[in-house]
Design a binder for these strands. Structure first.
Length: 496
RNA sequence: GGCGGCAUGGCCAAGUGGUAAGGCAGAGGAUUGCAAAUCCUUUACCCCCAGUUCGAAUCUGGGUGCCGCCUCCA
């Protein structure tokens, strides 16, 4: 495993080497918990979950920290709108976040600090910046002075001398007037009436947005971390400011590798709250789209590229997943391999794989090593799955020969490898069957009526009165009930 | 205006100098009383123009179209 990654900082693909051999420290920008997460968040966190799983699979000890921004104007607005408190809104959305992530099989971060729990670290960092002359206070606010920090703009490619006038015209607020430079940003905001506030050397107030990440990284992981993650929309100003704060304080590089994921688009436009074109993870999954379908959908594109969300593309992913899932279901009699991702599994030499399977695994790692080319990696899974899937279908049809074939060491090994690689991508088998649909539907026919119809059709078929049999099926279909004949004269049904 | 990115078959999407992965859809075949499901086979010269090269989707220059960031945002 020689992982290469596109580093936003250098705009180049670089070979990944951790600061400390065998260990990787990662900080991932989390969500502002004022609302439910949408597909853009899903895409981002799925991508980083795969990075993390791949590193673990490669034998690294990964420490993954992700924050919750639980102090923010939008949370306050939401609280005001619904007559509750900032805490209540945050708490509710943090729970929702965890539930959504769990459904998508995204591993929980090792530590998830909250802004409200990091005030000491935040105040300490601001004090350091002040002592170094990188910050100044104005009317109860404290700002970071971008002109004092050489290298400001290095992540986003901005040049302060050329950017002067642009930001100015936009919002001529009183806050702008307090700043020495338009790009200066608040480290600490003086308290406003009726808002939550915390004591500080600069008076009561609350932290600015960017400072929490710098403080949390320093507290949880130290001055320099290996990888910093986030959406491409965070490059400027958020990550640029994070770098400025952290590096001004420590004099050391904040993160060696900066990775950014592309946006999810709808009709060619970025999915976002402000445009109102978003679909929440929850709404999508509750509508019957399986979590693994969503996962497959996002992994079929490279993480840095924009991903267009359309019903057609999602449908294609759903069909694709169905096939993969069938093969996976067969493969994981040894269920542990698909549920957990373990570094031991990479030592495939001990698995006694055939040359073909060794080659397949090599193609998978080559793809993943190439800046996490999950689309190419998935192609390997589909190829491994094909024969297993065929076998799964024959077994379902009651083919005794197939049932014996699956015991062959060669096929068993292929199944194990498939399950192992699927786990690296966080794809785990789902057991949804027609039976599940029975529970789900709230149709206009009750189950016993349907069963009666099926029995009537069975008799019609036995009498070779196919016209009558087809009429029954068509009538049921019109009511949203689909019949599927299985081997052995069994007919299953499900609601559409 | 500044910074960055993208343009590959009907759709999604890999491939970044050596003759186009994979998924979906479509077509043909097998199977099925029919249907569904399933299996097999099959479908592209890569936005345009001009260059570099023995050879380019892949490099260079120009053009066209689209997107992101510059304001909260994964």
């Amino acid at each position: 495993m020689t992982l290469t990654l596109t580093n936003t900082l250098t705009r180049q693909v670089e070979t990944f080497e951790p600061l400390e051999p065998g260990k990787v420290s990662i900080y991932c920008c989390g969500v502002t918990v004022y609302d439910l997460c949408h597909l853009g968040h899903a895409r981002s966190y799925i991508a980083w979950d795969v990075l993390r799983r791949y590193l673990i699979w490669g034998g690294y000890a990964v420490t993954f920290v992700q924050n919750y921004t639980d102090i923010d104007d939008k949370i306050l607005n939401r609280a005001a709108a619904e007559g509750s408190s900032m805490e209540a809104v945050s708490e509710r959305n943090i729970e929702a976040f965890m539930a959504d992530m769990a459904r998508l099989n995204i591993l929980p971060a090792d530590r998830m600090p909250r802004a409200t729990g990091s005030l000491d670290a935040i105040r300490a960092l601001i004090s350091d910046l002040e002592a170094k002359g990188a910050a100044y206070s104005a009317d109860g606010d404290v700002y970071f002075a971008v002109m004092k920090h050489a290298g400001y703009g290095k992540l986003s490619g901005r040049d302060l001398s050329e950017q002067q006038d642009n930001a100015a015209g936009r919002v001529a607020t009183e806050e702008e007037a307090r700043k020495q430079h338009p790009f200066d940003f608040a480290l600490w905001k003086g308290a406003k009436p009726g808002e939550p506030s915390w004591d500080s050397p600069w008076g009561a107030g609350r932290p600015g947005w960017h400072i929490e990440c710098s403080a949390m990284v320093r507290e949880e992981l130290g001055d320099t971390i290996d990888i910093h993650l986030g959406g491409a929309d965070l490059i400027f100003p958020h990550h640029e400011n994070e770098i400025a704060q952290s590096e001004a304080a420590s004099g050391r590089q904040l993160a060696r590798y900066w990775l950014h994921n592309g946006m999810v688009n709808v009709g060619g436009q970025k999915m976002s709250k402000s445009l109102g074109n978003f679909t929440t993870i929850r709404a999508l999954l509750d509508s019957g789209v399986s979590p693994m379908t969503l996962r497959l959908f996002t992994l079929q594109a490279h993480y840095r590229k924009p991903l267009d969300f359309t019903a057609e593309a999602l449908e294609a992913a759903a069909t694709g997943w169905k096939g993969l899932n069938a093969a996976l279901g067969l493969a994981v009699a040894d269920a542990t391999s698909a549920e957990a991702i373990t570094p031991a599994r990479i030592r495939g030499d001990s698995l006694g794989l055939s040359p073909e399977l060794v080659a397949a695994r090599a193609r998978f790692t080559a793809a993943m090593d190439d800046d996490l080319n999950t689309a190419a990696a998935l192609a390997v899974l589909f190829e491994l799955a094909r024969p297993l899937r065929a076998l799964a279908n024959r077994i379902e049809r009651g083919d005794a020969v197939a049932a014996a074939e699956v015991q062959q060491p060669e096929l068993a090994a292929q199944g194990t490898l498939l399950a192992e690689l699927a786990a690296v991508l966080g794809l785990k088998p789902e057991t949804a069957t027609a039976a599940n649909h029975r529970e789900a539907g709230d149709g206009n026919l009750d189950a016993s009526t349907i069963e009666d119809q099926i029995e009537a059709r069975r008799q019609a078929k036995a009498e070779r009165d196919f016209a009558a049999a087809d009429r029954i099926r068509n009538d049921l279909a019109a009511l949203g009930i689909e019949l599927i004949d299985k081997p052995g004269g069994v007919t299953e049904w499900l609601r559409r």
